[in-house]
Design a protein around this nucleic acid. Structure first.
Length: 283
DNA sequence: CACCATGTTCCTTG
DNA sequence: CCAAGGAACATGGT
């Protein structure tokens, strides 16, 4: 489940559910997911703490908690990796196969499920220091991109995955944004014209915002116990299939007609990841 | 068995 | 030190 829009939708979903809940039990089943915080350290810190708020920064979830006794506020950092999910469930519910961390909050429990264990739930906030601007903050403009890409010889698609350039864009929305802007994913970052960086900044915002709106509109299945169907990758609840159609325009659509010019969409590999584009619309 | 998968980090090479 | 490329991490789906 994880690029900026998915995390944003999840954060909005979790915020009211977690707010003011007190942690009564912490279960760490996979040390790796919590590191570099030692599990006993994490458990000791969290026990008795109350959730104050849930926010997003890039693809990270930032939980603010309060220890009532010490009267200390602190933050917990979450990341979903490739397959992470976070949701509330009845304490009595049977835990699924891969749940690295679980916290009991009265009759409900906060579940961090992650089949591949690439995600994180830790007290180490240092990854936040490496992040570039949020796509929706005022600083993020075509001019910013132009400056930041100066002298860059790496392909723009690959650069968009660099979280220090912009925070939150991942493999799906990188292809989508470049398609929307009509820019070749192969073009070196430093060779984009002023016009192109302006279009790209706008397209990134447009594509992410559209996805957030989609995720806030459609009934989602955030527990994700069902399989994904490739159209909305964290899965929708029943009866949402009509919304599916136009969500993504090029990602995972190799061989299908480009929505603008009908040329078949192509897939190729950059930096070990799939890129999708229209060879005619994106020069 | 082969290849693919929403992400990040580490190791090598130049 | 920097940039770039590739593999590793771990599990599951097709």
């Amino acid at each position: 489940m994880p690029e900026l829009p998915e995390v944003e939708v999840l954060v909005r979903h979790l915020e009211p559910l977690l707010k003011n809940k007190v942690i009564q039990t912490v279960i760490v089943r996979r040390e790796k997911v919590v590191q570099p915080t030692p599990p006993p350290n994490l458990t000791q810190t969290l026990l008795g703490s109350k959730f104050l708020r849930v926010q997003r920064r890039g693809k990270y979830l930032v939980f603010t908690l309060r220890q009532p006794v010490a009267r200390r506020d602190y933050q917990l950092l979450g990341h979903l990796g490739m397959t992470g999910r976070m949701y509330l469930a009845p304490v009595s519910q049977e835990p699924p196969k891969h749940v690295p961390v679980e916290m009991h909050l009265g009759k409900l429990k906060f579940v961090f499920e992650d089949t591949r264990y690439f995600g994180r739930l830790t007290l180490d906030l240092s990854p936040l220091d490496e992040l570039g601007p949020e796509p929706f903050e005022a600083l993020f403009t075509g001019e910013y991109l132009r400056q930041a890409l100066k002298g860059c010889r790496q392909a723009i698609k690959v650069k968009l995955l660099d979280q220090s350039l912009v925070a939150g864009v991942g493999n799906i929305y990188a292809s989508e944004a470049l398609f929307d802007a009509g820019i070749s994913p192969r073009k070196a970052g430093g060779r984009l014209t002023v016009n192109e960086t302006r279009r790209l900044a706008k397209s990134i915002q447009k594509v992410l915002l559209k996805a957030i709106k989609f995720g806030s509109t459609v009934p989602l299945n955030l527990e994700g116990s069902k399989k994904r169907n490739g159209l909305f990758y964290y899965g929708t609840a029943e009866g949402a299939s009509e919304y599916y159609q136009e969500r993504l325009r090029v990602y995972d659509k190799a061989g299908q007609a480009c929505p603008k010019c009908k040329t078949p969409i192509r897939r190729f590999v950059q930096a070990n990841r799939s890129t999708y584009h229209c060879p005619r619309c994106q020069r």
